[in-house]
Design a protein around this nucleic acid. Structure first.
Length: 964
RNA sequence: GCCGAAGUGGCGGAAUGGUAGACGCGUUCGACUCAAAAUCGAAUGUCGCAAGACGUGAGGGUUCAAGUCCCUCCUUCGGCACCA
């Protein structure tokens, strides 16, 4: 074939595929397994960018490969067609959002066709059509009937200047995207979906999914499950003691419930903090109650806190708060009265909106307590576990306990400290020792210093308290828990008595500076001691050993938690960072929420027979100034009758979050034209769950989580068969501009795929994108114009290969061919498409060394190339004399016997260093291989005069000869 | 701060514990050409004339053999973040 007219070839084959309906996917095919390969459907923004090519043309390689492997593959496409940009276009440019959206889709459809992707267009799903959103509404109503939808005052982003609600995407750094005013939070009644009911299942069911760990972790992190306890603190009113009849401001029992993950620190709780929004605070400061001594002051604080914008809260993290005077709480662990504060570092929406503050063991409480001069009581002593040798804890063996000291001893004249270098165990420590009966830690330290070093006059300066070290005591053959008092002493002079020889044999005495000690010390307990000395220890927030905690003192955190919760009558609970899903949007271009409000019946869902609630045409898309959707202006549409009682009623005018539309679209692909159901049971069974879902990492925690929840809710209602929608999920990487920066018009680094396709062809672009890096890993790949040239050259060289008759391939070339078949198949399977392309290039390089490539070998090559360069491959396939498309041909098989050539080149190492190579016949014995290695000139040189100690031969891989 | 991923030539990136840098780009030299482009051939980790030495973020360890496994640390990127 002469030349490479990609435009001609691509046009020709795209037309032929279309005429032949080549990619229409039957619901089922006798003898073939169905494979559902899903990619996130695009938003019809108006133009395809390189990212779209990466999202759709590269996965098409996998879809085509799976078809050639004999699967009935569904690779569908559609449009996520509701959403804000259409509405903005309407407002800014006076366009109709529907027209804008549909003309964009028309344009993008042609662009998508130019990829040569094997989409089944007969299954196209468009979320903004009534045929689709009828079922979005129907499913919403099913969730409502199931009790998973509720209406509640929820905070929304409010722009005070534009007088409108803003979507999260319209808030940029806390400011309105349009006018730049600081965004406020405003409470509005909105529809919410109880995704939190599914929080545990959304975490726990991940265990059974074949997903990358990073995606699972991101979801787990986002849901944010914490296990802890709710503990009640009884209140005593001191300003109005008559309130002490055990009644709270609203008649409830006078107590406050806090959530904590650290009930083991309860004895150290020295005050309580309530969020400004906390109900108790709201009630206690309202006009009907008078139990607080400083009601006005508290009120003023609450008002100031609510005025703080999101931005101010983020920027200014300095703790603020006010004491609630006239009432105190009782710490249920020790009966002590503790003060109550209101402070906005406690969040109203999490836990009970109230915390017990343990300033000794929590950074935030410590900061607050320091600022407000509140007591700080240490109740946890640091505890360290030796996890590496020497001294690694022996699992399952009991611990003996021992009172001990760690003595930090300063030099009499220099800024240096005593350190011991241990001879048997290669440890570096301070002076350590046990405490005898009746000794103070200081006395024990002085005694130990004298014994181990001979110094007589160490003056105790400070006791830093106890640190627990748990380790395996090698000489005593037991696990030990040393309760070590860290004592700091200073030598007054260098007067010294002789040291016993057995001490000298054990360790060497060194004088080290603090810096040197940091590198020298081995056990964590000693490093902790050094940090205490230097004042860099900070507060201890980890689990440890209890102190100052009554009968629980000396227990370890884990054990103490359950016991303390039981002791004070608390309740073990879980909390989540995940919030319920607010789905109301005060927007026009979305699915109308199918609810009607009737004065008698409250909110009633629209009856099935009235679905869909069609989005009415309106002329003014501007939102109303009071935060309602523009739909509120369509009064004819708004006024309706109640589906329940037939009385006058009004429609809900908010529309649904577009994440609702995309929570079930993949189900519709199975049965896109169904008018009686969202999809038939039978067709769902054909296709669900999705075998592999490819998408962007930005959807890991939102769309993927929402749709998993939605699917589970549907599963519980018997609407789908599986509790999870996606068997596998992968996040693709990002394509950056040639400068490595994110592509943006302002940076002028945008690559227009249409332009590149015009110049180099779709096959080149597809293959280049596959070559750029592994597809199954999240990475950022700069667009490299040179790289596209390399791929284009490759395709031109493929065309130029001279095809011969059917002479057999030589063994080496045949081995490369079969290795390539294996490699390309294996690597497409794991989406490492970059190495597939490299393997094809290697095969081409090998073929180019031949005068002519045998016809069959060339055919195989074209088959391997077919998923990557579908147009050119079909063209070459036709030129080879075939009548039907290469895309209908089965994937080539490799012959395992031919993977290895007759001879292989094996590297030879001497003492692990590469010294030469030998060519060996396949299947030689170790003796033969070694003999060949020894007789190799280079190798022999290195063996001369040396004694061989050992030889390792890994067939086909390496020979390693170990010499003296 | 917490969670996750990753650090390999000038660049994108390869490497079941087995000759580090496949493949491509770029660069250099050569062929073809009046010339250039395109194409083809050769070279291309660093230092060194060479023999060789050194090389996968740093430092230790395991191994006949470590980019790969283990420990400590550093850096970059992504997500979450006053979540008790």
């Amino acid at each position: 074939m002469e030349g490479y007219d990609h435009t001609e070839i691509e046009k020709k084959w795209q037309a032929r595929w279309k005429d032949a309906d080549l990619y229409k996917t039957p619901d089922a095919v006798e003898g073939k397994e169905n494979y559902y390969f899903l990619t996130e459907f695009p938003y019809p923004s108006g133009n395809l960018h390189v990212g779209h090519w990466y999202a759709f043309s590269v996965p098409d390689i996998f879809a085509r490969y799976m078809r050639m492997r004999g699967y009935n593959v569904m690779y569908p496409i559609g449009f996520d067609a509701f959403g804000l940009p259409a509405e903005n276009a309407a407002i800014q440019r006076g366009l109709n959002p529907r027209d804008w959206t549909f003309s964009n889709m028309e344009y993008m459809r042609n662009q998508l066709l130019s990829m040569g992707a094997s989409f089944d267009w007969s299954r196209e799903v468009i979320t903004c059509t009534p045929e689709y959103y009828k079922w979005t509404q129907w499913l919403f109503i099913q969730l409502y009937n199931k009790g998973l939808v509720y209406r509640r005052e929820t905070s929304a982003n409010w722009c005070p200047k534009d007088k409108t609600v803003l979507a999260n995407e319209q808030v940029v750094n806390g400011h309105c995207e349009r006018c730049g005013s600081p965004v406020e939070k405003r409470m509005m009644p909105q529809w919410n979906i109880k995704i939190t009911d599914y929080a545990d299942r959304l975490i726990d069911d991940l265990a059974g999914l074949d997903w990358p760990k990073q995606i699972k972790d991101a979801q787990i992190n986002w849901i944010g499950r914490s296990e802890g306890a709710e503990i009640n603190f009884a209140l005593t009113f001191t300003y109005k003691p008559e309130a002490n009849d055990n009644r709270g401001p609203n008649g409830e029992k006078a107590q406050l419930s806090v959530f904590t993950t650290r009930p083991d620190t309860l004895f150290g709780a020295t005050y309580l903090v309530l969020a400004p929004e906390h109900l108790w605070v709201t009630l206690a400061t309202d006009d009907n109650h008078d139990v607080l001594e400083n009601k006005d002051e508290v009120r003023a604080y609450i008002a100031a806190a609510s005025k703080k914008s999101e931005l101010e809260r983020k920027e200014n993290k300095e703790k603020t708060g006010v004491e609630v005077k006239g009432v105190v709480a009782i710490n249920p662990a020790n009966g002590q009265e503790i003060p109550i504060y209101v402070a906005d570092y406690v969040l109203g929406g999490y836990g009970t909106g109230a915390i017990m503050a343990v300033p000794a063991h929590d950074e935030r409480d410590f900061e607050f307590a320091t600022k407000f001069n509140l007591p700080i009581v240490q109740v946890i002593e640091p505890t360290y576990y030796q996890t590496t040798e020497p001294g690694k804890i022996k699992e399952g063996e009991p611990f003996d306990h021992r009172e001990a000291i760690i003595a930090i001893v300063k030099h009499w004249s220099e800024d240096k400290y005593m350190a011991l270098k241990w001879k048997k165990v290669a440890w570096g420590t301070f002076i350590t020792g046990g405490i005898e009966e009746g000794q103070t830690p200081e006395q024990a330290a002085q005694m130990e210093i004298e014994q181990e070093t001979g110094y007589l006059h160490a003056r105790p300066v400070k006791n830093f308290g106890v640190v627990h070290g748990k380790f395996y005591h090698v000489p005593k053959k037991t696990n030990r828990n040393a309760h070590a008092h860290v004592v700091y002493l200073e030598l007054e002079d260098d007067e010294q008595k002789p040291v016993a020889d057995e001490e000298k044999d054990m360790h060497e005495l060194l004088w080290l500076t603090a810096d040197e000690l940091q590198k020298f010390l081995t056990p964590d307990t000693h490093i902790y001691g050094l940090k205490m000395l230097l004042g860099t220890a900070g507060i201890y927030t980890d689990a440890g050993t209890l102190a100052n905690s009554g009968q629980f003192t000396r227990l370890e955190s884990e054990e103490a938690q359950a016991k303390i919760v039981e002791f004070v009558g608390g309740k073990i609970t879980k909390q989540y960072q995940l919030r319920d899903w607010g789905v109301s949007r005060q927007r026009y271009w979305g699915v109308p929420i199918p609810m009607v409000h009737c004065e008698n019946c409250e909110y009633v869902p629209v009856g099935d027979e009235q679905l869909p609630v069609v989005l009415p045409e309106i002329s003014d898309y501007l939102p109303t100034g009071d935060g309602k959707s523009p739909l509120a202006k369509a009064t004819d549409w708004v006024n309706t009758t109640c589906p329940k009682c037939g009385g006058p009623a009004v429609r809900e005018t908010d529309t649904l979050d577009t994440f609702v539309d995309s929570s079930w679209y993949f189900l519709r692909y199975a049965d896109p034209k169904n008018t009686a159901e969202f999809a038939s049971k039978e067709k769902l069974e054909n296709w669900l769950p999705v075998d592999l879902y490819s998408g962007g990492s930005e959807h890991t925690t939102m769309h993927v989580l929402y749709s998993r929840f939605w699917h589970k809710a549907m599963f519980d209602m018997g609407l789908v068969n599986t509790p999870e929608p996606y068997l596998k999920r992968m996040n693709r990487g990002l394509i950056m501009g040639p400068d490595g920066q994110k592509m943006s018009k302002s940076k002028g680094n945008v690559i227009d795929p249409d332009e590149i396709v015009r110049q180099l062809g779709a096959d080149t672009v597809r293959m280049y994108l596959a070559f750029i890096g592994p597809y199954n890993e999240v990475g950022a790949y700069p667009w490299n114009p040179g790289g596209t040239v390399g791929v284009r050259r490759f395709l031109e060289r493929v065309i130029k290969l001279k095809v011969g008759g059917n002479e057999p391939l030589d063994s080496k070339t045949d081995a490369v061919l079969h290795q390539t078949i294996k490699k390309v198949g294996d690597d497409i399977g794991t989406l490492k498409l970059n190495t597939c392309v490299a393997a094809l290039m290697t095969l081409l390089n090998t073929f180019e060394k031949l005068d002519t490539v045998p016809h069959d070998a060339y055919s195989t090559f074209v088959q391997l190339l077919a998923p990557f360069a579908p147009h050119l491959s079909d063209e070459l396939w036709e030129k080879l004399g075939n009548d039907s498309s290469v895309h209908l041909v089965a994937w080539p098989q490799f012959d395992p016997a031919k993977l290895v050539a007759d001879t292989v080149i094996v590297g030879v190492q001497i003492n692990g260093k590469a010294r030469g190579t030998v060519e060996l016949a396949a299947g030689v014995t170790q003796e033969e291989a070694l003999a060949a290695a020894r007789s190799n000139e280079n190798v022999a040189k290195w063996l001369e005069g040396k004694v061989e100690k050992r030889a390792v031969y890994v067939p086909g891989r390496i020979i390693n000869i170990v010499v003296d």
